[in-house]
């Protein structure tokens, strides 16, 4: 009896959670295939007629260019984050317990987690303008910088816990220098953390609106997908059809990436390393 009550509670909470996610998703997807008139008149109904006009409109408005921009920015930013942050994290994780400089550096770098973006938004924008970096490379540099605190924090914790120092030593004796040891042993063993940070940072960078708005405002050829999507929202009129279809395009990419990488997120990669 007690067990049944608990189960019922679980299902109730899960049900509410499911609806909270499903209803907006359902409305977005359905609206993408409706005519604008039906979206305002029959928001909850199924598309009637079922139309691809909204997607055609996106193509006409040049979504391809913005999609490419967003993909380029996300892929390059994530690649740089995955190349540099674990390298720094590995060095910090291995030295933090016996070298003060590393502990200080770690403290300083992770402090960024507690600084809200809005606080530094204006100075950052003016600084990037002064350096002539109000463009895609500038935005990528900012993403790399902003990803450091949280990503470093995650990697350092993971390395300390999951990659025993004996593996470094075994590799050193087997014939590895520091770089070979990092790339051949440590880096592949961080796979679960690469997947985790890829999803966290990828989601944020792909969907980010504020930073591109501040940095890429000047030249609409460099806009990202969220900036393009915002064009369909006006003060007095919103073009709902193309808006929703562009959201579907954006969501599909994230969903695909998540489906590919989710199995790595919490997998015990180091089982069998020691003992």
């Amino acid at each position: 009896m007690e067990q049944k009550k608990t189960n019922l509670g679980h299902y109730l909470i899960l049900g509410v959670g499911f609806l909270l996610i499903f209803i907006p998703l359902y409305l977005t997807v359905m609206s993408a295939f409706k005519e604008t008139g039906q979206i305002t008149g029959d928001f909850f109904g199924l598309p009637n007629p079922f139309t691809f006009d909204n997607f055609a409109r996106l193509l006409e408005d040049g979504i391809g260019k913005y999609f490419v921009n967003s993909t380029l920015i996300s892929v390059v930013s994530i690649a740089l984050i995955t190349l540099f942050v674990p390298m720094a994290a590995f060095s910090i994780a291995r030295n933090i317990s016996n070298k003060k400089a590393f502990a200080l550096m770690y403290g300083f770098l992770t402090l960024g987690i507690f600084v809200p973006f809005q606080v530094i938004m204006i100075p950052i924008t003016s600084m990037m303008t002064k350096f002539g970096l109000s463009n895609i490379p500038g935005l990528i540099i900012l993403y790399l910088a902003y990803a450091v605190p949280q990503t470093l924090f995650l990697y350092v914790g993971y390395i300390k816990l999951a990659i025993p120092i004996e593996l470094d030593e075994a590799a050193a004796i087997d014939g590895c220098g520091k770089f070979k040891m990092y790339f051949k042993i440590a880096f592949p063993l961080m796979k679960p953390m690469h997947a985790t940070t890829l999803i966290i940072n990828g989601l944020w960078i792909w969907n980010d609106f504020l930073l591109p708005l501040l940095i890429l405002n000047k030249d609409d050829a460099t806009w990202t997908l969220p900036l393009f999507q915002y064009n369909y929202q006006g003060q007095y009129f919103s073009d709902f059809g193309p808006s929703f279809s562009s959201y579907v395009v954006g969501i599909s990419v994230i969903l695909l990436v998540y489906l590919i990488f989710q199995k790595y997120i919490i997998s015990g990669m180091t089982n069998g390393a020691v003992k």
């Binding site: 025993p164 004996e166 593996l167 030593e169 075994a170 590799a171 050193a172 004796i173 087997d174 014939g175 590895c176 220098g177 042993i185 592949p188 063993l189 796979k191 990669m269 180091t270 089982n271 069998g272 390393a273 020691v274 003992k275």
Partner: peptide, 18 residues
């Protein structure tokens, strides 16, 4: 270590798990 022509067996084995 790599240039000393030695091999070592660790207490924890230290096998590369991947």
């Amino acid at each position: 270590p790599k240039d000393r022509d030695i091999a070592m067996v660790f207490q924890s084995y230290a096998l590369y798990p991947h």
